[in-house]
């Protein structure tokens, strides 16, 4: 398989992972008006949970789902017991998530040590498929497939269910949503838990590919941040497009300009900030 195609496949796979990470980040931001600075920690801690489950011999998919549930619980508790107390005070809320990100990072280092963990790709997902005379690694395709399925599920939820209607109302105008009787506080807990679960699920999906190591959280958080600045807060479509855009920039940037890959990654963000501060798919908040 030639280099460009490999890069493209890797880009799409990373894009899929980034979507799992940033979809929740974007919904939380859209709804609660705060960037959740512990979102990278959700991703990393979820991945550590996943590799531990796998280490005990659990089935891969089960491990990913179990990790998602565990993280949903942790996310819900952080929201209920800490963020809720600061309801409406955005800045303290953000700083609180920052504080938790340090706690989680250090606990992970304590429990899982500083060595990277890389679970083997599950047996049934190894190998490559051949199409049009070229080989595509199955696992990368699976990541993309899962991301697409979850994107569709999220889209259906947001656009077609009552919960989705409440989320949309909350994203558009929290005070009005509160006035028409939506229990915004329960909605916040739910979305925070959902975002945490998605990030953890993505973390487990990414583990065989990225491996899990200290500092993974700090690498993923800025990626979620730029995806959402690019795509616009609260917009799932924005998160999707932004994720794949960043997936491509990351892989191609690293291959073509390894020294400046990180700068290239942030350039579209800078452009968007200057030209269209609300993001590509964001609404202007009055």
């Amino acid at each position: 398989m030639n280099l460009w195609l490999t890069l493209a496949v890797n880009s799409i796979a990373l894009g899929g992972l980034l979507f799992l990470l940033s979809a929740g980040f974007s919904l939380i931001f859209g709804l609660m008006r705060i960037p959740n600075l512990m979102h990278g920690s959700f991703f990393m801690l979820g991945a550590y949970f996943g590799v531990t489950f796998l280490d005990r011999g659990m089935n891969f998919w089960l491990a990913a789902i179990a990790s998602g549930f565990a993280m949903a619980l942790i996310g819900a508790m952080v929201e209920r017991f800490f963020l809720k107390r600061l309801s409406g005070q955005e800045l303290p809320q953000v700083l609180l998530t920052l504080g938790f990100s340090f706690i989680i990072a250090d606990l992970c280092l304590l429990i899982w040590t500083g060595d990277p963990w890389q679970p083997t790709t599950p047996a049934h997902l190894r190998g490559a498929v051949q199409a049009a005379g070229m080989f595509f690694p199955i696992y990368r395709l699976v990541i993309v497939g899962v991301a697409v399925v979850i994107a569709i599920a999220l889209w259906l939820m947001v656009d077609w269910t009552r919960l989705g209607a409440m989320i949309r109302a909350g994203v558009d105008d929290a005070p009005i949503a509160r006035m028409v009787g939506i229990k915004v506080s329960q909605l916040f807990t739910l979305i925070f838990a959902l975002g945490a679960a998605l990030a953890a699920f993505g973390g487990v999906m990414g583990a065989p590919y990225l491996s899990v190591y200290p500092g993974l959280d700090a690498e993923m958080l800025p990626l979620a941040l730029i995806v959402v600045i690019l795509g616009g807060t609260g917009s799932l479509l924005g998160a999707l497009v932004g994720s794949f855009l960043i997936g491509f920039l990351y892989n191609f940037g690293q291959a073509l300009f390894p020294d400046l890959a990180y700068v290239i990654l942030f350039l579209p963000m800078v452009l968007v900030l200057v030209l269209r501060p609300q993001g590509l798919f964001g609404k202007v908040v009055p």
Partner: peptide, 16 residues
């Protein structure tokens, strides 16, 4: 070696 943990806990405590 747990400075980060302490930093995080102080952050959370002061803000809360």
């Amino acid at each position: 070696e747990r400075w980060n943990l302490v930093l995080g806990v102080i952050f959370v405590a002061i803000i809360s």
